[in-house]
Amino acid sequence: MESLESAYGILFTGVLIVLAALILLCLLRAIIGPRTADRIVAANMMGTMVIVMIAILTVKLGEGYLADICLIYAMISFLAVIVLTKVYMGVYLEKKEKDEKAAASRNREETTGDGQTQDGSAQSLQDGSSGEEVSDGNI
């Protein structure tokens, strides 16, 4: 029976060490990832591996309540992906909208000429605020 216990210990310790190394590689991917989506994917993978580590500790230590922590960690990891995605997409769309408005008003001022600068700027402001359809609420 003792050999079985030691076999369980060796297996769990080895798997935990391998998963820790993989989490470090995930962190490396998150650091060097050239785009934002790379970093979010790496964070998601780290969450998955931490879930497996907590589940292994559940069986290794024989503590049933760690399974609840595992489940809640899965939910929080999912929520983190949703929130990060929404935030980055909202920031991007807002910046794009602002840039398009600035470009449109600049174009109108150039085309209307120098004689009626006040009228032209007022008109361009109105047009810029009402005429431009930027997005269809895709957030």
């Binding site: 989506a37 998601n44 998955t48 939910m75 999912f78 992906v81 949703i82 995605t85 997409m89």
Partner: peptide
Amino acid sequence: VIVFLWFSSPVSSHLIARLEVT
């Protein structure tokens, strides 16, 4: 946990892909 990840993983993949394409 397995069942929850079956549901949540496609959703998060879809969101990340849409972020990247946008």
